[in-house]
Amino acid sequence: MDPSNPYYVHHSDQPGHILVPIKLNGANYQSWSKSMIHTLTAKNKIGFIDGSIEMPSETDQPAEFASWNQCNSMILSWLTHSVESDLAQGVIHAKTAQQIQKSIAIISQGTMFVASYFIKIKGLWDELEAHRTLITCNKMKTHLDQREEDKLMQFLMGLNESYKTVRSSILMMSPLPNVRQAYSLIIQEETQRQMASEPNESFSIAAAVQNRTTHAKFKDKICDH
């Protein structure tokens, strides 16, 4: 097969291959995703991620489907080996919807960052959706809205008790935010806490040095901005 073909698999490509030097832990998503995108682009496999390479029909295009399935499975394996075990194990061992439901019911933040916790529970939600039959009726929107509310409750209830105040505030909103909006609010709270707990000694030293420099240069002229 032509190496420029996205279905081409090099002899060095193995399921257990780790594509990037850092593993996704939830808090490092930006740097991890950029590294992963660069690597998959270099391997001509980014189309499997962004959706530009669609799954061919298994019945009408069996040969092409076999090639697509081989590449897709390889990429899934790469991704599984590129995330920390606590993010991967919740999905890769789940075989039935009942197992996934149980995992969702008992999941909690614990010692994880909020981002790690959200990625883990979202993986379970996505896996559960793959086991469900799509509803096609005039109550589809109501059904989807209920699922979204269920996800919101599952996410909020699994957070540590240190977030109970912001959790209560979110639940009092009308209308309720979706789970992604709630996640964004929780991340803002976590970021503010981290900033508040950081020592400001370096800032104080820098300000003192700047103040001395200003006075030395301008003497009696002081900026009050």
Rank of each mutant, 00 (worst) to 15 (best):
S33F: 12
N160Q: 10
S33H: 09
A42V: 12
P199G: 04
K151N: 13
I119F: 05
S77H: 05
H93Y: 15
A207R: 08
Y163W: 10
T80R: 15
S31H: 08
M1Q: 01
L185P: 02
L40N: 05
S82F: 01
C71T: 12
E149I: 12
C223K: 07
T133F: 08
A216C: 09
A207P: 01
K122P: 02
S103A: 13
D145R: 13
H81V: 06
D224K: 14
M55D: 06
V209Y: 02
L40M: 08
S12R: 07
A182P: 00
F65D: 01
H93N: 10
T39N: 03
Y117S: 06
L24Y: 02
A97D: 13
S103I: 00
C71F: 03
L144H: 04
H38V: 12
S174D: 11
I121Q: 03
G26W: 08
S12N: 11
D126S: 13
T59E: 14
S162T: 13
N211V: 02
I222Q: 06
E64R: 13
M157I: 00
C137Y: 06
R132G: 06
L19W: 08
I104K: 04
Q146D: 09
I100K: 07
M172T: 01
S197H: 08
I92E: 07
G16C: 11
D145I: 12
G47Q: 05
T213K: 11
A27V: 04
L79V: 09
H81F: 10
H131C: 11
K217P: 02
F65E: 01
G51I: 05
L156G: 03
V20A: 05
S82H: 06
V166A: 06
L76H: 09
Q192H: 01
D150E: 15
T214D: 09
K120Y: 03
M140E: 15
F203W: 03
S169A: 14
N160C: 03
G110F: 11
M140Q: 15
E58R: 13
S33N: 11
T41P: 01
R212K: 12
S82K: 07
N44R: 10
P15D: 04
H143A: 05
E58K: 14
I107L: 15
S162P: 03
M36F: 00
Q181G: 05
S52G: 01
D220V: 07
V20R: 11
Q89H: 08
H131I: 02
H11Q: 08
P175S: 03
C137S: 14
L76T: 06
L76E: 10
H93L: 14
H93P: 06
A63D: 13
N211F: 03
R167G: 09
R193N: 11
P177S: 03
N44W: 00
L156M: 11
A42S: 13
T111D: 15
V209E: 14
A27K: 08
P177N: 02
W68L: 04
S168Y: 03
Q181P: 00
P199K: 02
L134G: 10
S67P: 00
Q109F: 00
S52N: 05
S77N: 13
K43T: 04
L134W: 06
P3F: 02
H17L: 15
S197P: 04
S108H: 15
A208G: 13
K139Q: 14
K102G: 08
S103H: 02
L79N: 07
Q146A: 14
K122F: 04
I222L: 07
I18P: 00
M112T: 00
Q181R: 09
T133Y: 08
I22E: 15
